[in-house]
C-alpha cells in the first residue's frame, strides 16, 4: 500500500523511484534482446552465474553438515566433489566470459563499470577459492596454507588473514568472501541490464555496401549506425529493450 500523494516523498519512496527509474521492470527483465545477441560466447556469462549457484548450494550443504561429514562419509565426500568441480567450472567459464568480453570491447558505450565489476568479481573469487582450499582440513590444506602464508605475511596481510588459522579462513570462505562475490555479481548483472549488451563494432557504410564485414571503419568506432542496417526478425519483441542506450 502506498502513502497518499500529498505527503512529502519519504526515503523509501525516493529509493523506490530511483530504483525503478534506473531499472524499470521491462529493462530489468526484458523479453527481448538485440538481434546481435546471437553467439555461443553469450552462454558463458550465464554459465558463470549458474556455476556460482551450484557452488553456493553445494557449499551451503557442506557448511551445514560440517568438516567431519565431507571427510568421513561417502555422501559428504560426493558433495565435496560437486563443490570442487563447480569451482573448476566457474573459473573456466568466467575466464572464457572475460576473454569474450575483452574481444567485444564490452566496456564501450559507457559500460566501463560493467567491465570493472566483472573483473573485480573474478579477482575476489580467487581468495574466495584459496580460503576454500586451506579450509579442506587435509594435506593439500596444510601445504597450501604453510606455503601461501609467506606471501600474505610479506605484505602485512597475514596479521588479519592467517591462512593457518582454520576458524578464521572458514569464516572468510563461507561468509565474507562469498558475500562479496555474490554482491559483485549482482551489481554486474544489474549494470548489464541497465546498459544493455554492448553492440557490435559498427561497420562503415561504404564497407558494408561493398560487402566487407570486417571493414569496421576507422579507430574512432566507425560511422555506421546499427539502426540503419539491422533487420528486424520475425517475432521480434522490442518490449522494454528500447532503453538499452548507454548512459
Amino acid at each position: 500500500m502506498s502513502a497518499s500523494s500529498e505527503r512529502p516523498a519519504s526515503w523509501t519512496v525516493r529509493v523506490r523511484e530511483a530504483g525503478v527509474s534506473a531499472l524499470p521492470p521491462e529493462k530489468l527483465l526484458p523479453d527481448g534482446q538485440p538481434t546481435y545477441v546471437a553467439s555461443w560466447i553469450y552462454v558463458f556469462g550465464v554459465a558463470s552465474i549458474a556455476s556460482l549457484v551450484v557452488i553456493v548450494t553445494s557449499g551451503t550443504i557442506l557448511a551445514l553438515k560440517g568438516p567431519a561429514w565431507w571427510h568421513d562419509t561417502s555422501v559428504g565426500h560426493f558433495f565435496n566433489s560437486i563443490h570442487l568441480w563447480a569451482v573448476e567450472l566457474f573459473f573456466f567459464v568466467i575466464v572464457v566470459h572475460l576473454w569474450g568480453k575483452y574481444w567485444m570491447a564490452a566496456w564501450r558505450g559507457g559500460r566501463a563499470r560493467v567491465w570493472i565489476t566483472g573483473a573485480v568479481t573474478f579477482l575476489v573469487a580467487i581468495p574466495c577459492a584459496l580460503t576454500g582450499y586451506v579450509s579442506q582440513q587435509n594435506f593439500d590444506a596444510q601445504w597450501i596454507s604453510t606455503q601461501a602464508k609467506d606471501a600474505m605475511n610479506s605484505v602485512g596481510v597475514g596479521a588479519f588473514f592467517n591462512l593457518t588459522n582454520f576458524g578464521q579462513m572458514y569464516s572468510y570462505h563461507i561468509l565474507i568472501l562469498p558475500a562479496a562475490v555474490i554482491a559483485l555479481a549482482v551489481a554486474h548483472v544489474l549494470l548489464v541490464r541497465r546498459h544493455g549488451v554492448v553492440p557490435p563494432f559498427e561497420i562503415g557504410r561504404r564497407a558494408a555496401a561493398l560487402g566487407d564485414v570486417g571493414g569496421d571503419g576507422d579507430g574512432g568506432g566507425g560511422s555506421g549506425d546499427g539502426r540503419a542496417v539491422a533487420q528486424p526478425r520475425a517475432g521480434a519483441s522490442p518490449t522494454g529493450a528500447s532503453g538499452e542506450a548507454a548512459s
Binding site: G109, G235, A246
Partner: peptide, 11 residues
C-alpha cells in the same frame, strides 16, 4: 559507440 536502435528478438 551508439545506442542500439535496431531490431530485437525474443529472449
Amino acid at each position: 559507440t551508439q545506442p542500439w536502435h535496431g531490431a530485437y528478438a525474443p529472449y
